[in-house]
Design a protein around this nucleic acid. Structure first.
Lengths: 136, 136
DNA sequence: ATACACCTTCCCATCATGGGAAGGTCAAGC
DNA sequence: GCTTGACCTTCCCATGATGGGAAGGTGTAT
């Protein structure tokens, strides 16, 4: 199966499949006599795995770890769980940070009359240049 | 005031100050006879404005809009409010997306015994390659 | 044979940021 | 005056994930 078909079937673009191979996330694909890459069911499986993990927000290095564990039929599930938990923690931190931003902005938006008048608490606050006040 | 002092006083690195000038976010700084950039209070104000806005997660184009409005003393506050509200909406979407990821992962982690045994629902799920099941 | 779709590699762009080289400038100390 | 060290300048390169596109080879259908 050519790279185009593998791309269509896995949801990973051909461009990205070559990229994943180049950075070592995927092992080099088999080549046919015409130098075309050749993919089988097993490769498709890995490509779908990668796509799904990317959708869940795992970074490429994390996916590398997960793939290695996935390829190793005898690995302890402990490892996988640890990686997933670390990733959940990362997601939570980022969510908290963005919520803090949004809360600060909501306060400011609430204080801004938003009409033709020029004075605007949002700009006034940005102009202060201080740290995030709603942090604590 | 040299770029280093402006950087120290605004919290924006010298590297980034030059970058913001290069992409047109800041007007070209005054130059002294030795070709050094020269900054005054007004520039410091803009730099602090930018730093604060970046911290609140505004993109560079958004900051460009906000800066333009800020420089225009007579602008209607409506504009500023609209930009801020749009940005809040963006933040909320991203937060929701990341929370969905985290929830899916939490389910999977909850189902994984996480010991020496090799079977692991997390990897099993990733291997399915389907869409996000916890979406709806 | 011709056309068209597909494949290959290689280079460039994004976005915000940082690293670093090569070279000019300035202030302090000897 | 000359050296030293801190600062400035511009320019190039790297990140990480992804896409665009060129130049050229291959495969298949008409």
């Amino acid at each position: 199966m050519n790279i185009g078909a593998a791309a269509a079937s896995s949801g990973v673009t051909a461009k990205m499949i070559r990229h994943y191979e180049a950075i070592g996330l995927l092992r080099p694909a088999e080549r046919r006599s015409n130098s075309y890459r050749d993919y089988g069911e097993r490769d498709l499986h890995e490509l779908r795995f990668i796509r799904r993990a990317r959708r869940l927000g795992f970074s490429i290095p994390e996916i590398g770890e997960l793939l290695a564990l996935w390829r190793d039929r005898g690995r302890p599930s402990r490892e996988v769980k640890r990686i997933a938990e670390t990733h959940i923690g990362d997601l939570q931190s980022r969510v908290a940070e963005m919520q803090a931003m949004a809360n600060t902005l909501r306060e400011l938006v609430g204080a801004c009359h938003g009409d033709d008048r020029p004075d605007c608490p949002i700009l006034d606050d940005l102009a202060l240049g201080g740290g995030a006040r709603t942090k604590g």
